[in-house]
């Protein structure tokens, strides 16, 4: 299962919301879709879910075009929007049963599917509660359950972690990992970049409708970081280490923290490795040597203008 997004463009009047976006992802992958507000993430996701029509370009889900065969494409996509179900007068089970009916499931099959999805998303115990009475985390699970009812091979999730408490975020992360292991291709947008970097294999960063950078997290982190920050915690001789670091040519700045030293150096991962090698060769006893600042968040801050 491959999802190919090809030269996608969407105009709203004179405003170009999505501008010639192309990227690919496939089964078992979790792709982070990152960008500041108004970057075009939701528009792209709505186009993928066949809710909006692109001005030009196309997206093919396992070869099925969202422009030419939207009915076929929407059977392959489960869409989780950024808004959560809020009905006061419908229970979790009734809500899922309604959507199962809307997807054309009937009889025993419908009941079995709803039961299985409730069990998978851990909703069985709260299936009789009304949606309005649920916490955000629970509502998010209901939303995910709804998107999984027709067993789509592709999941498109718009800001699923927004507003969730840490426990709910961990639960969601676990569910996404299981779904990814089951072979689903998952596109997920989020503002919580640390969260995304923990679950995503790759990321696409967009701004003003254009892709700024894309690839695996390692790939997109590498070329962007001209200056790296390293945190070093020595067992002893902290003063000596501080003085010695100041003498190294590619070290830009050295800051003494409580029990560690923050070093800013220019160069690549090889330069970081070389620094550690020199410290050990010089007899410093290093407890912790941590490369800091090559995560998704710093890449995002580096590449976007905001």
């Amino acid at each position: 299962m491959h999802v190919n997004i090809l030269n996608l463009r969407k105009d709203f009047g004179a405003t170009r919301a999505v501008d010639d976006i192309s990227f690919t992802f496939s089964s078992g992958q979790i792709i982070g879709f990152v960008g500041p507000n108004g970057a075009g993430k939701t528009t792209t996701m709505r186009i993928l879910a066949t809710l909006d029509e692109p001005t030009s370009g196309d997206a093919k889900i396992d070869g099925v075009s969202i422009v030419e065969v939207p009915e076929g494409a929407r059977r392959l996509v489960g869409y989780v929007p950024d808004s959560l179900p809020m009905h006061r007068d419908i229970s979790v089970h009734e809500y899922l049963d309604f959507f199962a009916r809307a997807y054309g499931l009937t009889g025993v099959q419908r009941r079995q599917v709803v039961k299985n999805i409730e069990a998978f998303t851990n909703l069985t115990d709260i299936r009789e509660r009304t949606l309005y009475a649920l916490s955000k985390g629970m509502k998010q699970r209901v939303s995910l359950a709804r998107a999984l009812l027709h067993d789509p091979p592709v999941l498109v999730m718009d800001e699923p972690a927004a507003g969730l408490d840490p426990r709910a975020r961990v639960e969601l992360r676990e569910l996404l990992r299981i779904l990814s292991d089951q072979g689903k291709a998952i596109l997920i947008s989020s503002h919580i970049l640390t969260e995304l970097s923990e679950i995503c294999d790759s990321a696409v960063i967009i701004e003003q409708g254009r892709i700024i950078t894309a690839g695996t997290l390692q790939e997109i982190a590498k070329p962007q970081v001209e200056q790296q920050t390293v945190l070093i915690r020595p067992l002893d001789r902290q003063d000596d280490l501080y003085q010695m670091l100041l003498l190294i040519p590619n070290v830009v700045a050295v800051n003494r923290l409580e029990n560690q030293i923050e070093v800013k150096i220019t160069g690549s991962d090889e330069d970081c490795s070389g620094l550690l090698e020199n410290l050990i060769r010089d007899g410093y006893r290093i407890v912790e040597f941590k490369q800091h600042g090559s995560d998704l968040e710093s890449v995002f801050m580096n590449v976007t203008k905001g």
């Binding site: 996509v77 869409y79 950024d82 179900p85 997807y103 054309g104």
Partner: peptide, 13 residues
């Protein structure tokens, strides 16, 4: 007024 109504359009309804 609720964005969730869109979800009906990606079903077979």
């Amino acid at each position: 007024a609720d964005a969730n109504v869109d979800l009906l359009f990606i079903t077979t309804l």
